[in-house]
Write a protein that binds this DNA or RNA. Sequence first.
DNA 1: CACTTTAAAGGACATTTGTCAAAGATCTGA
DNA 2: TCAGATCTTTGACAAATGTCCTTTAAAGTG
Lengths: 192, 192
Amino acid sequence: MESNTHPLRIQIEELVQLTDKEFALVLEHFQQKRFKKHQIVLHEGDHAPFDFFIVKGLMKVSRIDLDGKEHILQFGMENWWVTDSEAFHHKTPSTLMVDCLEDTLALAITIENKDKLCLELPKMQYFFLKKATNGYIALQKRILCFLSSDANDRYHNLLSIYPGLIQRVPKAMIASYLGVTRETLSRLSGKK
Amino acid sequence: MESNTHPLRIQIEELVQLTDKEFALVLEHFQQKRFKKHQIVLHEGDHAPFDFFIVKGLMKVSRIDLDGKEHILQFGMENWWVTDSEAFHHKTPSTLMVDCLEDTLALAITIENKDKLCLELPKMQYFFLKKATNGYIALQKRILCFLSSDANDRYHNLLSIYPGLIQRVPKAMIASYLGVTRETLSRLSGKK
DNA sequence: CACTTTAAAGGACATTTGTCAAAGATCTGA
DNA sequence: TCAGATCTTTGACAAATGTCCTTTAAAGTG
């Protein structure tokens, strides 16, 4: 892949500029991973050795509750970062499951390499700080959506956050992300 | 206040060690602010010039929706950080309101001083990165709570996140934080 | 202390959402 | 292409929650 058009480089350079050499250094800290559709990337209870930058494909992060119902915390498509954040950063057993909804190509980084990269290239610590801050803001918005919007509004909000997702994911999973049953989501479809 | 027992220093030193001189430098980037109960610290639509570290007192962050209903995104008591994150970091007009539930003493930092401090003292950038990451993890947990728990579970979850809050805040506000009406919360009180 | 405001709880009823069941539609792999 | 699996929609009913209202208690104010 041409370095200048590498999706990871494009994302980083939205926040900080890198030389070719610096980006090469960044890439050295990642390993490329391929997963097949339906493959489980992280089992609940396991340690989470990687944070994944998705180059191509689609993953989901979810939890199965005591009644066997799946609750979807996050979808990850191209250019999204996906992991169990708590397990990854705190080295605790994962409470979430990560699996693939499509064949997926990802760049994987360990917490050790992430810390090392931040020390070697302080720009990258700035990059990760901005990404964490923006992630925090995005989750605040999702919470406000739970507080103030009904399922219909949340559905339309989802469409704007994940353009194209609706064509790639069963509606039952969309419902799970929204916190309603598939029946409720189905009844919503009639409404604007 | 004795420097070694300053609440801000205690919080920072949970993640990075500081010399007396370094902590003095940190403090130089903040200004002390006092607010009275019911005082509005940030009006919706205004710019958010400060992130507040609460030394003493209690604030809330909320939004009033089109029907006039208040939705509470966050409470901030001692040692919590409070602002409209999006408005503060992106310098956009605030979409949230911040006000005081008690007389409050806070340390206020501007985004310019925060950036400057991170450059002067890279440890502090690391500190803010860890805080942002932990904040992200906490919000993920709150979202999972919305997805998988009923209001009763969310209520007990709130009690564990904000010990002592229940004694300081009207139940109607607790209900607003949980995303239910005060009547529903009242019915819950009977259940374990 | 008296007075006003605010908070809490509960009842009655309407609305929303979940649950369970069934049927049709779509996708998928041999 | 066919047959099984998965997905989506719909209906009937139950459960949860919201809305509106009243009553009582508690807190704040002059």
